[in-house]
């Protein structure tokens, strides 16, 4: 009986922690806004949107992956933040994420792609990405780890110069 009570308490605590993280208010961006998230989100720090500067993105936890960029054929070590963690931070729920770039490129990323844990890269091979070199943010997929990601469709989702994410319902 005690074990059951303890288990219930642990589950309730874990649930409340998860909820509180998603619902935790997002402070206003102090630096240059690198990423704006709109659409079906619960957490905002500006009217109808969530804005992230570099420090806010880095606070979500740095991740890295090694992948080959199909255009150059070169393999790079990308570092940044998980796309999934950004969407979780704003309480995003939807079917697709429309990723838009400073160069006006746009592509829809299905929610299902989050299972591959794509990265929003902020640096490549230790060099911070700048606008002139596919930065400051670049969506990269672990295409070297999953053969299913090595096709034109998934390659088209490597959005460089990313600046906006819009979460849409099914």
């Amino acid at each position: 009986m005690h074990r059951l009570t303890l288990l219930t308490a642990v589950i309730a605590l874990a649930g409340s922690l998860t909820f509180s993280y998603a619902a935790e208010p997002l402070p206003a961006a102090k630096g240059e806004v690198l990423l704006t998230v709109t659409g079906e989100i619960d957490v905002t720090n500006a009217p109808g949107r969530a804005e992230f500067d570099r420090a806010m993105l880095e606070a979500l936890g740095r991740k890295s992956l090694t992948a080959t960029f199909v255009i150059s054929g070169k393999t790079h070590l990308f570092e940044g933040v998980s796309l999934r963690s950004v969407l979780e931070r704003v309480g995003g729920k939807g079917a697709t994420v429309r990723a838009s770039a400073w160069n006006d490129y746009e592509v829809d990323i299905p929610w299902d792609d989050l299972k591959y844990d794509p990265l929003i890269a902020m640096s490549a091979d230790g060099q911070i990405l700048t606008l002139r070199d596919k930065g400051p943010l670049w969506i990269v997929y672990p295409r070297d780890d999953y053969s299913v990601l090595r096709d034109d469709l998934h390659d088209s989702r490597w959005v460089w110069q990313l600046n906006r994410l819009r979460i849409a319902r099914p």
Partner: peptide
Amino acid sequence: REQTPEFRLAILISRMAILMDGLQ
């Protein structure tokens, strides 16, 4: 900022770099 020559030049440079890379 998106309309400034500095910004447009950065975008153009990135596009040209793509054209000179790999198979392209």
